[in-house]
């Protein structure tokens, strides 16, 4: 598994990307209407740890998020989950889809 410590800086466009505030409690996963087990806590952890391959293996999941903010409404750490997911989409659009 390749780990790239600079990956998070490559992804984040501003301090709005606050994935590091996540305390891994799992509430987001429990309340997700789509039943997305990966989002957002594991996914954000991959970004923070720099496991780029794992992030890119989960493109479908990243775009399946409804941005409905049910997770945000329940998040005790006030992680801006929807904005963080959008940030990942922005990155993938540029780097993977070349849009």
């Amino acid at each position: 598994m390749l780990v790239n410590p600079d990956f998070v800086d490559e992804v984040k466009r501003s301090e709005e990307f606050n994935a590091s505030a996540c305390m891994n409690c799992g509430v987001c996963t429990a309340v997700c209407p789509m039943g997305i087990e990966l989002l957002p806590r594991k996914l954000f952890r991959y970004v923070l740890l720099g496991i780029k391959d794992r992030v890119l293996e989960n493109v479908e999941t990243i775009y399946s998020c409804l941005l409905c903010r049910m997770c945000e409404a329940n998040c005790p750490a006030k992680v801006r989950i929807a904005e963080n997911v959008r940030t990942l989409r922005y990155y993938i659009n540029k780097k993977v889809f070349k849009l």
Binding site: P33, S64, L66, M70
Partner: peptide, 13 residues
Amino acid sequence: FTFCCGGPAESLF
């Protein structure tokens, strides 16, 4: 705490 209708996924899935 409303439950999303799923519509935002319509364009891709």
